[in-house]
Nucleic acid binder design. Structure first.
Length: 295
DNA sequence: GCTGCTCCATACCAGACCCC
DNA sequence: GGGGTCTGGTATGGAGCAGC
C-alpha cells in the first residue's frame, strides 16, 4: 500500500457526504483543484472511478458506496482515539435514540431513565418503535437497538442482555384464572390475540399446538404487546407476551398470567450498536447502564 | 442558438520535506 | 546544497445547464 493518509480518507468522506468536488473542497478548506487531485489519487489507489459525472453532478460508484461506512467508522475511531477520554455527565446534554419494542419501553424505560438521570440529568432518551434492518444504526438515525437480534450482520456490535420467555395472559376474571393449570385443550377452547408487527396471526405457539393435533382461533392480530394486553384485558380472549412485560403490565392492569401449555422458543434480548459508536465514551456509558439493569 | 454560470479536470508553478 | 517527491494554489479549458 502506498501514499494512504488520513487526508485522503477525509477527502473521500467529504466527497461522499457532499456529492460534489466543489462542496467537498469548501468543507475541507481546500481549493477545488487540490480536492480534484486528491480524488484522482483516490481513484488511482482504489482502481475505481469512485465518482462519475452524470450531467453536472458527481455520482458515487458502487465501490464508493461500499467504502462509505468503513471510511466513516475509521474516521470516527480516529477521532475517538485523539479525543480526551473524559465526559462530564453532570453537564452532558445529549439525546440518545433507542429503537426497541413497546414491551421493553413499558417494562424498562422508566428504570433506565431513572438510572441515567441520577448521573446525567440533562441526557434525554428518545425511543422509537422497532423495525427490521440495521440501516437506522448505519445512517445514525438511532444510537442503540434493543430487541431480539437474529441477523444483525458483521457490521454491528451485539451484546446479550437477558433471556425471556412467553407466558399466557387472560383478563383477571377469565374462567381460566380459576384453574390451577391450563392444558392445551383448555388453551384452544378460547379465542386469541396475537401480537405481531408484521400482521402475522400464527407463530411458534401454533406450531407447538399443531404437533399435538390442535389449533387455536386467532381473533385479533395486534401490532404490539401493549395493544394485545389491552385487548386481552377487555375480553375473554387469551394472549401471549414476554414474561417481563406481563409482570410489568400486572402493575397497572388486572391480568391473569399463566405458563403456556406448549413449549415455545426462548427470547434472547440484546443491544446492538454501530462500530462507529463503540469508542464513544458517552455511548459506552449508556450501554453499560442498559446492561447493568439485567445483571 | 447564444451567453453566462457552475462544476470538474488538468497544466504549471511554488513551497515544504526528505534523502543522499 | 541539490534533486526528487508531494501537496496546494492559480489559471485555464471543456462540458452541462438555464435563461433569453
Amino acid at each position: 500500500m502506498r501514499n494512504v493518509d488520513i487526508t485522503l480518507l477525509l477527502t473521500l468522506d467529504a466527497l461522499l457526504t457532499e456529492g460534489s468536488v466543489t462542496a467537498a473542497a469548501d468543507r475541507l478548506n481546500l481549493s477545488v483543484p487540490a480536492t480534484s487531485r486528491r480524488l484522482a489519487h483516490l481513484r488511482d489507489l482504489t482502481h475505481d472511478e469512485l465518482f462519475v459525472l452524470a450531467g453536472r453532478k458527481l455520482v458515487p460508484t458502487a465501490r464508493a458506496l461500499d467504502l462509505r461506512d468503513r471510511v466513516q467508522s475509521i474516521l470516527e475511531e480516529l477521532h475517538a482515539l485523539f479525543t480526551p477520554n473524559v465526559v462530564s455527565f453532570e453537564t452532558l446534554n445529549r439525546t440518545f435514540s433507542l429503537r426497541t419494542s413497546d414491551g421493553f419501553i413499558g417494562a424498562w424505560s422508566a428504570e433506565l431513565a431513572a438510572r441515567i438521570r441520577r448521573e446525567a440529568p440533562h441526557v434525554k432518551l428518545c425511543f422509537y418503535p422497532h423495525w427490521e434492518g440495521v440501516e437506522a444504526l448505519r445512517d445514525r438515525s438511532i444510537d442503540l437497538e434493543i430487541t431480539v437480534l437474529k441477523h444483525t450482520g458483521p457490521e454491528v456490535f451485539k451484546q446479550k442482555l437477558f433471556q425471556d420467555h412467553y407466558v399466557g395472559i387472560a383478563a383477571a376474571g377469565h374462567p381460566l384464572a380459576a384453574q390451577h393449570q391450563v392444558s392445551p385443550n383448555d388453551y384452544v377452547r378460547y379465542g386469541h390475540v396475537s401480537a405481531s408487527r408484521r400482521g402475522q396471526a400464527h407463530g411458534p405457539i401454533d406450531h407447538a399446538l399443531a404437533a399435538l393435533g390442535l389449533s387455536r382461533d386467532v381473533s385479533i392480530v395486534a401490532p404490539d404487546f401493549q395493544s394485545a394486553i389491552s385487548a386481552v384485558a377487555a375480553s375473554d380472549l387469551l394472549g401471549a407476551v414476554p414474561a417481563s412485560f406481563a409482570k410489568w403490565a400486572q402493575q397497572s392492569i388486572r391480568l391473569h398470567v399463566f405458563p403456556l401449555p406448549v413449549p415455545t422458543p426462548g427470547i434472547e434480548i440484546s443491544q446492538a450498536w454501530h462500530p462507529r459508536s463503540h469508542g464513544d465514551v458517552a455511548h459506552r456509558w449508556l450501554r453499560n447502564h442498559v446492561r447493568a439493569m439485567f445483571t
